[in-house]
Design a protein around this nucleic acid. Structure first.
Length: 471
RNA sequence: GUCCCCAUCGUCUAGCCUGGCCUAGGACAUUGCCCUUUCAAGGCAGUAACACGGGUUCAAAUCCCGUUGGGGACACCA
């Protein structure tokens, strides 16, 4: 069999949607598995809705999730001659005809038909008029077959039959000369030698419209596969009402691209009970057979869990790298620049068990940047009291006696102070925690000290003692 | 209205094709317990589903038909 060629063909009418990313992902996985070609094509034939910013957003989004393409991005607006010449070919062969019906008239007739409970399809009044389009304002319609049936052997849903009687004579060239979607996709998929057209479920009924056009044009018909939709929590089509739908919004919210990919692929595809997959595993294990046939509800909770998993298990240096833009965004640019990548990776290790997103991680990491610490007032009031001052002073003296930080030695000293003072661990730990981090919740105290280093630990301890004596 | 798709815990799903191993498995969420210097993380346990009705069969979550419910498409949008 010839080489697999698949494509992702979004229209640039807004940001890149997570549903689009999932469609792209399935195509990409298949292409990579089959050592095929993945093509990015921008469907921008709707002049009024397409924007360059949207094209940038698509490229940015695809790049962020790491879905690289082998050919393109192609833009349909750069291929107008192709569509026109193929449309004229159909006209010459009697497989298309000029239609002089005005858009408003069609709209009115459609409404009327609907009101009567009839099918809103085109009544075919120009079908046999053999118009010439002298004034140049007619639209070109495809002469769709009206008998028999069109078979779609769907990669995911299996064989589906469509009665040709319900098929419409679609407009393939608008009166302004631009092709319509159902025509330009066919020409492009054919000319780009696409072997498998995999797209959203919402295109399923377009397929029996497009197959006759492939046939009329004399092109081989590709395989088709229709992915089930992603729904919101109320089981309606996913939209802004359900929360963020732009892929880049998830970057800003502190999600890792690998977590995003893992979540999206499991939404509609499975491999037994496995939940976590590396990219390589996905490429190896992906199969159309295991793609779900029914729609799936987008579950932000599970995505969050997956992100936490990836934060915990990804190489800390990579997480640290991804964290930098978020640090910048939180107004910690200078602080972030002042530390080494290694140190940042070390603090990622310190807090990665507690942060479910990079945004949360910024907050966890904040106390370890800079010399002094900002107290949570409530915490300071509760734990940095005059009563604790002697114990803190004693601890400080012990630590000062050590020339360098050693987890084992410092922890031993800490326990000794606790014992001598007749305290419980927590009674000393919490004040120290507040002195060191400003908060009542933090990673293990001695891990914190290690990241802080001897000097800052002692500095903050002294400041904590001072605060305790003042209150 | 017409056409098409779909239907297992609240959610994502395994099982369905090739009926019996299913007193239906896993994951997220949720509840309880354990661990514990705090917060997490982790460990253990629990609650929770075959939409309904008919067939076929010794046997149906699995095959067939119908009903209901959900989704999608019917543009000079894509």
């Amino acid at each position: 069999m010839s080489q697999v060629r698949v494509r992702f063909a979004p229209s640039p009418t807004g940001f890149l949607h997570i549903g689009g990313v999932r469609t792209a992902l399935f195509n990409w996985l298949f292409a990579r598995q089959q050592k095929g070609v993945f093509i990015l094509r921008i469907e921008d034939t709707d002049q009024s809705r397409s924007t360059d910013e949207s094209i940038q957003a698509i490229i940015e989004g695809m790049t962020w999730v790491g879905l690289d393409w082998d050919e393109g991005p192609f833009r349909q607006t750069e291929r107008m001659e192709l569509y026109r010449s193929h449309a004229m070919g159909l006209l010459e062969r009697g497989q298309a005809y000029w239609c002089a019906c005005k858009a408003e008239e069609l709209e009115a007739r459609r409404k009327e038909a609907e009101a009567k409970g009839l099918s809103p399809k085109y009544d075919g009044r120009c079908r046999n008029r053999n118009l010439m389009n002298p004034t140049g304002d007619a639209a070109l319609r495809f002469k769709a077959p009206q008998e028999g049936e069109t078979i779609v052997d769907d990669l995911i849903k299996g064989r589906i039959l469509f009665d040709n009687q319900v098929q419409d004579d679609l407009i393939i060239l608008r009166s302004n000369g631009y092709p319509t979607y159902n025509f330009s996709v066919v020409v492009d998929d054919a000319l780009m030698n696409i072997t498998h057209v995999v797209r959203g479920d919402d295109h399923l009924t377009n397929t029996p419209r497009q197959i006759p056009i492939f046939l009329a044009l004399g092109f081989p018909v590709p395989h088709f596969g229709h992915l089930p939709m992603i729904l919101g929590s109320d089981k309606t089509r996913l939209s802004k009402r359900h929360g963020a739908t732009s892929i880049m919004a998830y970057k800003d919210m502190g999600y890792l691209p690998d977590a995003m990919v893992n979540y999206l692929v499991r939404l509609g595809w499975s491999h037994g009970d496995q939940e976590l997959f590396s990219r390589q595993e996905l490429i190896e294990k992906f199969s159309w057979k295991n793609v779900q046939t029914s729609a799936a509800v987008f579950n932000p909770d599970k995505l969050l869990w997956l992100n936490a998993e990836y934060i915990k298990t990804s190489p800390p240096s990579e997480v640290a790298q991804a964290l930098v833009p978020l640090l910048d965004g939180a107004g910690l640019k200078e602080e972030a620049q002042a530390v080494s990548p290694d140190w940042l990776a070390q603090s990622v290790v310190l807090v990665k068990e507690r942060a479910k997103t990079l945004v949360e991680m910024v907050d966890w990491v904040r106390p370890y940047l800079g010399q002094a610490v900002t107290y949570d007032e409530e915490a300071a009031k509760k734990f940095l009291t005059p009563a604790i001052e002697p114990a803190l002073g004693k601890l400080l003296a012990c630590f000062e006696a050590f020339p360098a930080f050693s987890k084992q030695q410092w922890e031993g000293a800490f326990k000794q102070v606790v014992e001598e003072e007749g305290m419980k661990m927590g009674q000393l730990a919490q004040p120290v925690r507040v002195a060191l981090t400003g908060r009542t919740a933090s990673p293990g105290l001695f891990e914190v000290m290690e990241v802080l280093g001897r000097d800052r630990t002692l500095l903050r301890l002294r400041q904590g003692i001072e605060r305790a004596s003042r209150s």
